[in-house]
Nucleic acid binder design. Structure first.
Lengths: 189, 189
DNA sequence: CGCCGCCTTGATGAGGCTCAACTATTGTGG
DNA sequence: CCACAATAGTTGAGCCTCATCAAGGCGGCG
């Protein structure tokens, strides 16, 4: 379940073939922070220093491919296409993290709307999403408690924007969800 | 004062020679979000698409060097050193944005402590910082109101962690400031 | 001197965290 | 197949932090 832990030495970069991975920090007082979710087709594990800044854990059953940092560097140096992909991916990561930071002032419901839209943009083909993670995971990612996440789901359901059945979510009105954030999030596709 | 505006077409990348630049988004309802500050020696303006996602404004008197994206790409392709610098810078940007997002649950005082520590790590030699930006700027960056920022300054001053005189801030106890964030922020140097 | 922007401080209200109870779902052993 | 336990999700009540509105202070600059 754990691919690597916070503080480990490791230069490997990973590519998610199937499933979902989360990167996590745990404060000394036990408060957990989910720094990111990585879905099938995405990269993670590229860091500045030799020590892992966060742990990486499989959220559901997951297959991941591992590549050493030196091999990646060599590939990027020789193949301009790879270098461009890498740059583009990093820029996207930065954008996403900045978007999340910009949501600091937003309401819990707006944060959840952002989360769902982002998830739809990234992987799910139709309007249905099978969330692999718990409410607590979502909360630790958005900076909310699991109870507040649950309440936000209830509000979106009541307003007819989504339908839920356990962890299965159907986005009934994606445009309305997107509008909730004062279209802070441009089309990231 | 404005280097480029949100929505502009532009591929240029900038390097701050002196002064401070902020990148800004403005929602339709007028709420302002400062996405980042860039101090002397730092880069900004590198984005994924051809359209600017945010405006860039000089906070104080500033000199900035401009470089076209194509020239940067050529440089990075030919010079491994430049490519490495670029990668390292992007990773740092991502880290910083993720740190800020992770502060979502933190108190206003913790956020301000993070801000000051980050600022010290990045540019100021001694323990004194001459803030170039207003309380409102800081608030729009941290997701707080300017009043709350002001109150947080008062608390840190009362607790003997800083001394302030207008926009001049002296960090009396940097270690204590760093500890406030459950040492979420590792040494980023 | 008086205006103006920035900063500070106070009072009030709203949103979200915490504690707590209850329900739903899944898994386990008899 | 059922009883039970364990985990996840939902909903409610009270408190606390921060946003908002409002009123001064403190320079800078004409």
């Amino acid at each position: 379940m754990t691919l690597y832990a916070e503080g480990d030495v490791g230069h490997s970069v990973y590519w998610v073939a199937a499933g979902t991975v989360r990167t996590v920090n745990v404060g000394r007082d036990g408060n957990r922070i989910v720094r990111g979710f990585y879905r099938s087709g995405e990269f993670f594990g590229l860091e500045r220093g030799p020590l892992r800044a966060s742990s990486a854990e499989a959220v559901s059953e997951t297959r991941a491919v591992c590549c050493s940092r030196s091999r990646l560097d060599a590939l990027a140096a020789s193949d301009a296409q790879v270098a461009h992909e890498l740059l583009s991916w990093l820029l996207r990561m930065t954008e996403r993290a900045q978007d999340l930071a910009a949501l600091g002032r937003a309401s819990a419901t707006q944060k959840l709307a952002y989360f769902l839209i982002d998830l739809m943009d990234r992987g799910s083909a139709g309007r249905s999403i099978a969330l692999p993670m718990s409410r607590t995971d979502i909360g630790d990612y958005l900076g909310l408690s699991s109870e507040t996440v649950s309440r936000a789901f209830t509000i979106l359901r009541r307003d007819g924007m989504i339908a839920t059945h356990g962890r299965d979510v159907t986005l009934l009105d994606p445009a309305a969800l997107q509008r909730m954030n004062g279209n802070l999030l441009k089309a990231h596709s």
